[in-house]
Design a protein around this nucleic acid. Structure first.
Length: 427
RNA sequence: GUGGGCGUAGCUCAGCUCGGUUAGAGCGCCAGGUUGUGGCCCUGGAGGUCGGGGGUUCAAGUCCCCUCGCUCACCCCA
């Protein structure tokens, strides 16, 4: 074993996983930017206060944060999520509303790593701040859904609920707490602990022992105010209007206090474990205010990149993009010709590779083959002396030919267009 | 934080049950067969503190203890 390794829960992303992750973010960025969302890049380090406003479940949550005191005696934290950072940025800069933004980047949580969960993990998210129009909820939910469609995932379920707001949310919580307390004896030990900490989350229990009590517990839909019901109906109607299928799930909850009204989750169909949520979000109308800003409604979602890619693996979709090398320059005269020619051909827009260390022609040809290049351009002593190069197709039976260096591009064009249909249009 | 599985070559693993010469295979890498040409094939080569420490023993990759790491699940999930 090497002396130094990544610390627990952290990892190096190497190809092809790294290129696939970037391709994933590219798909996401293209999708949301077409919808008018702008990139905002908040720092990874925040004052811990930003995340202590997330609600009373904070005690538990704090234990899983990467926090420390820096050299200036500031208590800081590697951000555990992006939404609160973006809301902090909103308060700090007060941009015009509605503020439609997206971001993709790493977050940190100090918990035990397992499948699809690392201490540093990437999420992509969108947020809309400054409007409580239910159509904004619909737009946000649709963007997540369309992303899964673009990726080719078919076994994703959209679950939606309304958590209510203000009085109706409070009355439901009261009724739920009282009901669960009365039946605490019938709950699993673990759920009794959860009840003491965060009663809403008991509804999320997947333990068979709890099924009966959870099924009988009062659900939020019995407590909705007219306003909450109207908002939720509008969201559902909007989803129907753009033909996005959903399941209303009255027991869907969110762990943090700031969520109100719309809550939703995208649930994967292939991950059979207790954590099959690929992503989720909802309305957080009180968060900006809690961070010291003006009353500002907000809605957004965050999707776990690792978990979504795992779901892609399970469904056999979204493979990593393959490199397509156009030309491999083989130079047996020391390598300088390869340097010059590679530079020249790259400037013309081709994907060009070469080898180093003056290796044998056989070795360089082998590298050329393995690079996947369409054509090997070979320069040996004879070619160097006569100002020519040999162009040898590697993927067809066509003969190689010797061409003058000043017409090399033309020649490559003629053989590459028949072999490789599209060349980089930006050249 | 709790529990299970696993740590042997760059990678995937065999060897451990029942301790016994220089610790193996496939893939990958390098070179040669072909003194200027990839793929397929053949030959050769480099590459190992058997995760680390301690113990038992004449002898430990193999048995025992501890430890670190990986992994899966639970807990938690913003």
């Amino acid at each position: 074993m090497p002396e130094f390794r990544t610390t627990p829960g952290f990892r190096d992303l190497l190809p092809p996983a790294s290129t696939r992750q970037r391709a994933f973010v590219d798909v996401f960025a293209g999708l949301v930017e077409r919808a008018g969302y702008d990139l905002v890049v908040p720092p990874m380090l925040e004052d811990i206060g930003v995340f202590e406003r997330l609600g009373k479940a904070t005690d538990v949550v704090t234990k899983e944060m990467y926090d420390f005191v820096d050299k200036g005696d500031r208590h800081v934290v590697m951000r555990p999520e992006q939404t609160a950072s973006l809301c902090r940025a909103f308060v700090e800069h007060r941009p015009p509303t509605p503020w439609k933004v997206w971001y993709a980047g790493p977050n940190f949580r100090y918990d035990r790593p397992q499948r699809g969960r690392y201490r540093q993990f990437d999420q992509v998210d969108v947020e809309v701040l400054g409007t409580d129009d239910p159509e904004a909820d619909v737009e946000v939910i649709s963007l997540g859904w369309r992303l899964y469609e673009h990726l080719g995932l078919r076994q994703v379920t959209l679950a939606v609920n309304s958590l209510g707001a203000g009085d109706d949310k409070a009355r439901h919580l009261e009724a739920l707490t009282s009901f669960l307390s009365q039946h605490a004896g019938d709950l699993s030990t673990l759920s009794r602990d959860t009840l003491a900490r965060n009663p809403l989350r008991v509804l999320d229990s997947k333990r068979p022992d709890d099924a009966e009590i959870v099924a009988a517990a009062p659900t939020i839909d019995q407590f909705w105010s007219d306003e909450s019901a109207r908002h939720f109906d509008a969201v559902l109607a909007g989803l129907r209007a753009i033909r996005i299928p959903f399941v209303v799930q009255p027991r869907l909850v969110r762990g943090l206090d700031y969520y109100v009204r719309t809550a939703f989750e995208y649930v994967g169909g292939t991950l059979e474990s207790a954590q099959n949520a690929l992503g989720g979000g909802g309305r957080y109308d009180g968060l900006v205010e809690a961070l010291g800003g003006p009353p500002t409604p907000g809605v957004g979602f965050a999707l776990g990149v690792d978990r979504t890619l795992l779901a892609c693996d399970d469904e056999g979709v979204f493979p990593p993009p393959s490199r397509s090398v156009d030309v491999f320059v083989v130079d047996t005269t020391g390598g300088r010709h390869a340097t010059v020619l590679a530079d020249r051909l790259r400037a013309s827009g081709w994907h060009v590779e070469r080898s180093f260390d003056s290796r044998s022609m056989k070795s360089q040809m082998k590298s050329a083959d393995r690079s996947g290049a369409e054509v090997a351009v070979i320069i040996g002593a004879d070619e160097a002396a006569s100002g020519t190069a040999v162009a040898r197709p590697l993927r067809t039976d066509a003969d190689q030919s010797t061409v003058e260096l000043d017409v090399l591009e033309q020649h490559l064009d003629s053989i590459l267009t028949t072999v490789a249909p599209v060349r980089d249009a930006s050249r």
